[in-house]
Design a protein around this nucleic acid. Structure first.
Lengths: 109, 109
DNA sequence: TTAGTTCATTGCAATATTACGATTAATATG
DNA sequence: CATATTAATCGTAATATTGCAATGAACTAA
């Protein structure tokens, strides 16, 4: 075990969980906040800003990139990372629908 | 290692990550969706609905309860679970602010 | 070419998570 | 009381995640 039984759940449930897992680590939250805040989104800046080792940051960036939430552009020896706007918006739609469900009036307990 | 370096991040960043982690498993997504959808939120129903073993569901419920997102009420031999409305709303505020950041106009890459 | 810079990848150790069988605790019912 | 029902807890195995040192790959500059 230690293995999620994905097949028991709907595609939407798995998708929500995947997005949420991406935000489930403070380093990835910090990376995304930094990408939103600044235009200078060079990878090396993130390493200094966040204070984890370069391979660690690189790994977190890879996960966010794999989900399509960010993109990286090679510029000489450095790499510029940014939010992938279109996918971020799609993700927002999915997460908002999940988070913003109406709570049933009749309290059951 | 295998250990998040919480001290490197702000309280808000850690809070966002904790909430997100709660949604980072499809079983917990399914549990919450079910609690929203129905008033009959007996633990045993969730076990049947979701199709994981009872101790597994119980463990997921414990995590959601620990975060304050749900509450459980003992009713005889069974336990009735519901969304903890007030905390859910607070969580929504935090998550919405994170997800709904403005993307800087000037595309950097 | 050689050295320097920047970032990705590899490999590994430590810890966390997931899942469930077995058991326990609490309450109900005959 | 004895038994059944329901859900929590314990213990454990399997897998996943986190973090980093070491290394590699790609480019720049001298």
């Amino acid at each position: 075990m230690g293995l999620v039984k994905t097949e028991k759940f709907s595609d939407l449930q798995n998708e929500i969980a995947l997005f949420a897992k991406a935000f489930g680590h403070p380093a990835r939250v910090a990376i995304l906040q930094h990408l939103f805040k600044t235009d200078a989104c060079i990878c090396g800046d993130l390493v200094h800003e966040i204070g984890l080792a370069q391979p660690t940051i690189s790994q977190h960036l890879k996960e966010l990139k794999h989900l399509g939430l960010i993109k990286g552009n090679v510029e000489g020896t450095s790499v510029c990372y940014c939010i992938e706007t279109k996918n971020w918006t799609k993700m927002k739609t999915v997460m908002f629908q999940f988070l913003d469900q109406d709570i049933s009036e009749e309290a059951c307990c």
